[in-house]
Amino acid sequence: MPEILGSFCLVLHSHLPWVLGHGIWPHGTSWVNEAAAETYIPLLQELYKLIDDDYHPKLTIGLTPVLCEMLRHPSFINGFLDYLDEKVGAALHDFDDFTKNKYEEGRIRLTKWWEEFFERTRDDFLHRFNRDIIGAFKKLQDMDLIDIITCGATHGYCPLLSKDTSIDAQFKTAVDNYKHHFGRVPTGVWLPECGYRPGYRWKNP
């Protein structure tokens, strides 16, 4: 029997600051809309595809409290659908423009690729995931197919939080938020920016 040298754990971490109500671009809703369309939903699509093919994903993903709250906020859900419609419309416009002006074939095909991508994203968001990205991840965890961990409540950088009560509040709030969204206590946590306070005596900067 071959010697076991160690273990490998695939851990994905996801976080965005609160951007709802802060305009559209570059640090407003376009940020979370783009992340949902081009990261979170494609990841869910691939995970569910693996499961359909009888594979166990075997990964851990960190979803921060701020991100969970945003992705379940009504203004995100409604705005995200508008964003997807806008992207489909832009792809259709580019197709007509590129075809009319005789652009190279590769660029014309690319417009169709993006049209199909955003239409598929919208369809899965509406019908497969029931407008609930967090709920789609929760379902996978409830099936024991992935592990979801939490993070500091506001993604605060712990070494710069001078009071222990502030650090305690970050993680107590995170646990409460996790129980609200996932119906259980988290089994792990991602330290914001992987930052921790040294074990030796030190002075807060």
Rank of each mutant, 00 (worst) to 15 (best):
D97G: 00
K87T: 00
E104H: 10
L71R: 05
N101Q: 09
G79I: 02
V66W: 03
E69A: 11
E86Y: 13
E86H: 15
D94Q: 12
A91P: 04
P65C: 06
S30V: 04
L67C: 03
A91Q: 01
F80C: 00
D85K: 12
V66S: 04
D96M: 03
S30G: 01
E38C: 09
K49G: 06
D94F: 09
S30M: 04
I51A: 08
I41T: 04
M70E: 12
S75P: 00
L63E: 05
D96N: 11
F80V: 02
F95D: 13
E46W: 06
T99V: 10
H56R: 12
Y40H: 08
Q45A: 08
I41Y: 05
L47E: 02
K100V: 04
L71P: 02
F98M: 09
A90C: 00
L92Y: 02
T29K: 12
I51H: 08
T60L: 05
Y40M: 07
L71Y: 09
G28R: 06
G106Y: 11
E34N: 12
L71N: 08
G89Y: 01
N33P: 04
L63Q: 11
L67T: 07
K58H: 14
S75T: 15
Y55H: 15
T29W: 02
W25H: 13
A35W: 03
F98N: 01
F80L: 00
L44C: 01
Y83D: 06
Y83I: 03
D52Y: 08
S75L: 14
V88Y: 02
I108G: 02
S75R: 13
E104F: 09
Y48L: 01
R72Y: 05
K100W: 03
Y83S: 04
Y103D: 05
L44Y: 01
T29F: 10
A35I: 11
A90I: 14
H93K: 15
E46F: 09
L43Y: 03
E104W: 01
C68H: 01
Q45F: 07
F98P: 02
K58R: 15
Y103K: 15
L50G: 11
D94G: 09
H56C: 13
E105M: 11
E38N: 14
H56N: 14
L50R: 15
H93R: 08
P26C: 07
G106N: 15
T99H: 09
K100Y: 08
P42D: 01
N33F: 15
V66M: 10
F76P: 07
L47K: 03
F95P: 00
N78V: 04
P26R: 04
A36M: 01
L47F: 04
L44K: 08
